[in-house]
């Protein structure tokens, strides 16, 4: 079977899977929900505002932390290569490096950097 044949098989299988999923859904849950049935549950009272609301995820804290640990990994690859040659000295040096990073993480935690709201 050539590449085109394989693509056709995948297309057919995907189309069939979609149809089966739709059929299963209609068999198992044939009802359509009404407006009150769709309302999010907060304890019985209706919501006052729409559920779409703007929420700052505060990516900058996450980005800084990611950078810190990303750089750690960048340094770890060459370290892993020379680790056997250098022995315990390399291990101690890497532990010191990780400790400095951990101090940074603890500082972020203390500054409430992990609180998302």
């Amino acid at each position: 079977m050539g590449g085109l044949g394989a693509a056709l098989v995948v297309l057919l299988a995907a189309g069939l899977a979609a149809l089966v999923a739709r059929w299963l859904s209609s068999v198992l849950e044939p009802t359509t929900l009404t407006v009150p049935e769709r309302v999010p549950f907060t304890g019985g009272m209706p919501p006052q505002v729409h559920a779409w609301n703007r929420f700052h995820i505060r990516y900058y804290v996450m980005a800084l932390l990611f950078l810190a640990f990303d750089m750690e990994m960048v340094f770890m690859y060459p370290w892993a290569v020379v680790f056997v040659e250098e022995g315990i000295v390399a291990l101690v040096e890497m532990l010191m490096f990780i400790l400095i990073l951990v101090v940074g993480m603890v500082y972020t935690w203390r500054e409430r950097g992990f609180q998302w709201a």
Binding site: T42, G43, M45, F55, A117
Partner: peptide
């Protein structure tokens, strides 16, 4: 940040 008023409870 959005200020979202919600009634939580009574159930």
């Amino acid at each position: 940040l959005d200020r979202v008023p919600i009634t939580i409870g009574p159930w």
